[in-house]
Design a protein around this nucleic acid. Structure first.
Lengths: 248, 248
DNA sequence: AACACCGGTTCAAATAATGAACCGAATTGG
DNA sequence: CCAATTCGGTTCATTATTTGAACCGGTGTT
């Protein structure tokens, strides 16, 4: 791997649940020598992509990332453009709606509009969703190029609940169904008791860049409700895609 | 410079005003060979820190940055904790208030609370403020370690208006005054017609991490108003510092 | 038609990255 | 309480990666 790739791998070791990591730990997990890891961290720190807590000497992500992310968000305003549409979809369906963007083999939750109901699904911004096992992921795959789907299906998949689809032929069927009707449906594939309807959001080149999903308690959804949520989700996703590519 | 440093330099070429850049341009501005720039861009793109517009083949910042920035923001919630305090300060003073974080030798504007008045100062999120010539910067320097200030004062400074302080002894005086009373004052040092009061925000180790500022049209500020804005700004900055370090 | 510049590629030469061993200081645990 | 780990950090000969001049083919411009 390139030196740059190794440096970025170090950045990717930090998560919501583990935002500060020590040198030896970082080196071990990245599969790098301690000296190498430190040199890379210093290079990143010089540009404020990494900071070091002076007391504990542990490392954390730096302010430069916030700066770069803001520049990107201003130019590629997925969240800004999608937020009102998501809000409307949430009001229309009465359920929690969340938006995610594809990044590094998974979907990253960027925005959430919570249902007003007491019994609702809660989703965290920043949560990383696997492509299999979530409605958003299946919708994303269904809109992806065939070669990308094939490549993804070759790798092993983790089961999150007893309902998670991990077998390749099951996934192929689910993806085909989602592709044919425009939205995906997933019951308890990622978390027990959660039913989701997903729809892909497309970029200017027609390739999917992310997805949105309507998430409900399973008890509240039957086939009719799912169908109406699906149509609403597709409308919303289409609207967001259009706004992104500069249309109306 | 390290390979990693060069790669990050490429990222830093993108700005709010120029969010997409072509290969030759990037190489030229970074002082790199075209082939080198491309290899670095590919390494960054593999981790989604860079994306390439398929049509124009120009490069832009990638979604991975948004992801990393969100992880950092969740753990180091300067904006989240500061926002309500800034809002209150804006209401109290009736003026525009903005928050900035130190990054790579300058202050990066992270959040703005606009005045409700028709004649107000407008500030953009993402704007980069120089340490000299802005009230925020002087306040930041006044709270910094002496060696950091000295190092900064050695480098040449740009004048933005006819009022920008660029002479070293003027700056030393302004910094000393700000240090003694807790807030800084700057009139038209960065933009004509704008008067600002700045106060530094400190991290857990007592070192400054950023600053806030109250920005008003010069016509609305006399010494008495400046003094009351200064006291309010110091109170707000202290409150934010305390929240950041875990206190009430 | 000639020119200039674009994004992208190649490969021998040059340079930067690497990691085992080592240091002193905290922690840990028997 | 002392010995054994483990920590963050450093060194320097070895090694592997990065580098860039030259070269594509393509796309406007003149």
């Amino acid at each position: 791997m390139s030196t740059v790739g190794k440096a970025v791998s170090l950045l990717e070791l930090f998560t919501l649940h583990e935002p500060e990591i020590g040198l030896s730990d970082l080196a071990r997990r990245a599969g790098l020598d301690k000296a190498t890891a430190r040199r890379l961290l210093m290079a990143l720190a010089a540009h404020r992509l990494i900071e070091q807590e002076p007391k504990s000497r542990r490392y954390r992500l730096g302010a430069g990332l916030s700066r770069l992310a803001r520049i990107r968000d201003a130019h590629f305003p997925l969240v800004r453009l999608a937020a009102p549409v998501l809000r409307e979809l949430s009001l229309e369906t009465g359920e929690t709606v969340h938006l995610s963007e594809f990044s590094a083999g998974a979907l990253l939750t960027l925005h959430v509009e919570l249902s007003a109901k007491a019994n609702r699904v809660n989703v965290d911004v920043g949560q990383v969703l696997p492509l299999h096992g979530t409605a958003s992921g299946i919708a994303f795959l269904a809109a992806s190029r065939l070669e990308a789907v094939s490549a993804y299906l070759e790798k092993p998949r983790q089961a999150f609940t007893a309902f998670t689809m991990t077998r390749q032929d099951d996934l192929v069927k689910a993806i085909a169904l989602a592709a044919s009707r425009g939205y995906s449906r997933s019951a308890q594939g990622y978390e027990e008791g959660v039913h989701s309807i997903g729809a892909a959001i497309l970029g200017a080149d027609g390739q999917p860049i992310g997805a949105l999903a309507v998430a409900s308690p399973v008890s509240r959804v039957d086939d009719a409700v799912a169908a109406s949520q699906g149509e609403a989700a597709v409308r919303a996703a289409t609207m967001i895609s259009a706004r992104l590519t500069g249309e109306a």
